[in-house]
Simulated scan of single mutants.
Amino acid sequence: MYIKKILLAIVLIGLVVGGIFAYYVYQAIFSPNTNFESETTTLFIPTGATYTEVVEKITPLVKDIYSFDRIARKKGYANNIKAGKYILKQGLNNNEIINLLRSKNTPVQVSFNNQERLQNLAGRIAMQIEADSLSLINVFQDTAFVEKNGFTTESALAMYIPNKYEFFWNTSASQFRERMLKEYKRFWNESRINKAKAIELSPLEVITIASIVQKETAKIDERPRVAGVYMNRYKNGWKLDADPTVIYALKKHRKDWQTVIKRVLYKDLELDSPYNTYKYAELPPGPIAMPDISAIDAVLNYEKHDYYFFVANVQNFGYHKFAKTIQQHNRNKKQYIDWVNKQGIKR
């Protein structure tokens, strides 16, 4: 009888201990374990991060780091860290958090436009993915890659078509570059290639002219007409006489890309640079900026007309007055110069 009581007591104690253990396990796995007030929070795990580094990053985001650590080790996550951007929702339990960190790397929207140089592009992209600007500019300027794919150092910017793209945050610099090459080839589909051939330009020449159009007017509806002016000049062997190319040449010559030049002076037109289209009839060796898709398509579908000149329209700011003859252009130009002088714009 006494032995039976002892056995019963042992069983009861075992059940209690087992129940407590089961409850602890259940709590550790399935109880909410987040520690932030917002609906969601974002966790970035860098490439090559150790488990210790992940624990340091996630500690402020969970109530009980010890239970998280136990479950993470049990599920093998500690030995299988994956870099990326992870969005944690309020109220997730340890099991859900670990499953999310295993397989829910969230893409980011990467966008860029109007970059003047590869350096500017690198800085812009570095703000949106893990790769830093130095690694990006290094791969952008990699001579072997550039030449292999039909570009030069001066024209390499043309490969990056401005748009919104989806990337994983932990995309490397070389992965970004390879994706952009694919997007460039996709952009230059059969239709655009045929249009370029029809106007006797290569894709790079189209983008170079488009970059000038981009700088000349921010009005999308005016770009085909501006493109038509430059195509008329180019097809007839004229110099393009584009102020934006002179501004680019001045910045490059001075190695000062931060300066703002609002007015091109006559002395500036004498600068000896392949980018100075007042001095050379050839197209610049590459784009002077990153043109929007609208500017590229404006060149491919340029307006057919007899205009050879244009100047800013001071009666309708943002747009331009177009002229067929130099006499008419000089009258339009006088209105603009009078307005500039009245505003006191000297440079």
Score class of each variant (00 low, 15 high):
301 N>C: 09
303 E>P: 05
259 T>M: 12
296 I>N: 05
277 T>K: 12
289 A>M: 08
270 E>D: 15
231 M>D: 03
228 G>V: 15
255 K>A: 13
262 K>Y: 15
283 L>M: 10
274 P>R: 12
260 V>E: 12
224 P>L: 02
229 V>A: 07
278 Y>I: 09
237 G>N: 05
266 Y>E: 14
269 L>F: 05
261 I>S: 03
298 A>W: 00
271 L>D: 06
262 K>W: 12
271 L>P: 02
274 P>A: 12
274 P>T: 10
266 Y>G: 07
242 A>Y: 01
236 N>I: 00
277 T>P: 11
279 K>P: 08
254 R>L: 15
281 A>P: 02
284 P>G: 02
239 K>V: 00
257 W>K: 00
263 R>D: 11
282 E>C: 00
299 V>L: 08
263 R>W: 11
297 D>C: 01
277 T>W: 11
302 Y>E: 01
283 L>N: 08
223 R>M: 14
288 I>Q: 00
258 Q>F: 10
301 N>E: 13
263 R>V: 09
271 L>S: 04
228 G>N: 13
292 D>A: 15
286 G>N: 08
281 A>W: 04
237 G>A: 09
269 L>Y: 02
244 P>K: 10
260 V>I: 14
302 Y>M: 04
246 V>G: 01
241 D>G: 00
273 S>A: 09
229 V>W: 02
252 K>L: 10
295 A>I: 02
266 Y>M: 12
224 P>M: 04
273 S>D: 09
260 V>L: 13
289 A>E: 11
254 R>D: 15
267 K>I: 10
272 D>W: 01
236 N>E: 14
255 K>W: 01
283 L>T: 05
295 A>C: 07
238 W>C: 08
277 T>Q: 11
286 G>V: 05
288 I>K: 04
286 G>T: 05
262 K>N: 15
265 L>Q: 12
256 D>S: 10
297 D>G: 02
231 M>S: 01
291 P>R: 11
225 R>G: 03
295 A>F: 03
299 V>N: 09
238 W>P: 05
271 L>W: 07
225 R>I: 15
224 P>F: 02
255 K>V: 08
227 A>K: 06
248 Y>K: 06
264 V>C: 12
291 P>A: 12
239 K>T: 04
232 N>P: 06
298 A>E: 00
283 L>H: 10
290 M>F: 10
252 K>N: 13
280 Y>G: 10
227 A>W: 08
237 G>F: 07
283 L>G: 06
265 L>S: 06
